[in-house]
Design a protein around this nucleic acid. Structure first.
Length: 281
DNA sequence: ATGCCTTCTGGGAGAAGA
């Protein structure tokens, strides 16, 4: 199985490009973020014509997540249990949830497409929302893996955190002034990993970014961020045989500001373990 | 310590992104 995650920054603005990529690269499961449309505005037909089933969740012009799959999607979940909400004029548990998480089971793998809140600025209410959202995700992950430790389980998406200094290629982003690199955000990411999921791409692709801002020549200067990840449980990580970051998708006509991150999985069993990269310990 | 780009929208100036 070939699994990809991609913050597409509007599914309608670049639909052919996204479907073409999925078909050309033989993607079996494509987790998308920032579809920027309502559920019923999603261009299902184009994916179906290309041989994909789709589960989408969008409430308005912001956020929005979806999963396209060659095999049928089972047990689709909108939002993860305990996911906090956020809205202007709302605070605390009454805040409505945003369209930032959709999960489904495909071929025995539980896959989440996640769009972690941006945070906007250090100290902004959105920043605290981001940290709460990540804490709730950690809680959900921990609970899930303690209940079903052998589950092939993956958190994929735009985490809006550059976990190490090497993941930040933007000179203007400096510690103490910027979201995405602050210690509390990095601690939240580490806590998520400690809950039982590992970055399955980094051992295979140690360097490189997944996002470059549209302005200020960020892409030509290669001033990007690595903020899009595939975090897998032990059972998931054991099945990984390869990974790719499709940097070329940042080029050409109307690109997204993010590029696809891909992993190959061999889910036939533990026989072939010897040939696979060591991801956990 | 930001918005030079890009997207969206019962309305086109404002919100949001990282």
């Amino acid at each position: 199985m070939r699994l990809a995650t991609w913050n597409v920054n509007s599914i309608r603005a670049r639909l052919p490009r996204i479907v073409d990529f999925a078909v050309r690269e033989h993607i079996d499961v494509l987790a998308m973020q920032e579809i920027k449309c309502k559920t019923d505005q999603f261009p299902y037909e184009a994916f179906e014509e290309a041989g994909y089933h789709v589960a989408a969740h969008g409430l308005n012009q912001w956020n929005g997540v979806a999963i396209a799959s060659r095999e049928p999607l089972e047990d689709v979940e909108i939002g993860f249990p305990g996911m906090p909400g956020f809205a202007k004029g709302h605070d605390g548990p009454d805040a409505p949830q945003e369209a930032r998480a959709i999960g489904a089971t495909v071929g025995g793998v539980k896959v989440w497409s996640l769009y972690v809140p941006n945070g906007r600025a250090l100290g902004d209410p959105h920043y605290y929302y981001k940290l709460e959202w990540l804490s709730a995700l950690q809680e959900y992950t921990s609970e899930t893996l303690s209940r079903t430790p052998d589950l092939a389980f993956a958190l994929t998406g735009d985490f809006n955190i550059a976990p190490t200094d090497a993941d930040n290629g933007v000179p203007q982003m400096v510690q103490g002034f910027s979201t995405h690199i602050s210690p509390p955000e990095r601690e939240a990411f580490a806590a998520l990993e400690a809950a039982g999921v590992a970055d399955v791409v980094r051992p295979l692709i140690p360097t490189g970014y997944t996002y470059w801002d549209y302005k200020q020549l960020r892409f030509p200067r290669n001033e990007g961020l690595r903020i899009d990840f595939i975090l897998g449980s032990h059972a998931f990580a054991q099945a990984v045989t390869g990974a790719q970051i499709h940097r070329n998708e940042r080029k050409g006509e109307v690109p997204s500001d993010h590029v696809p991150v891909v992993v190959d999985l061999d889910l036939t069993g533990p026989e072939a373990d010897e040939d696979r990269p060591m991801i956990f310990g």
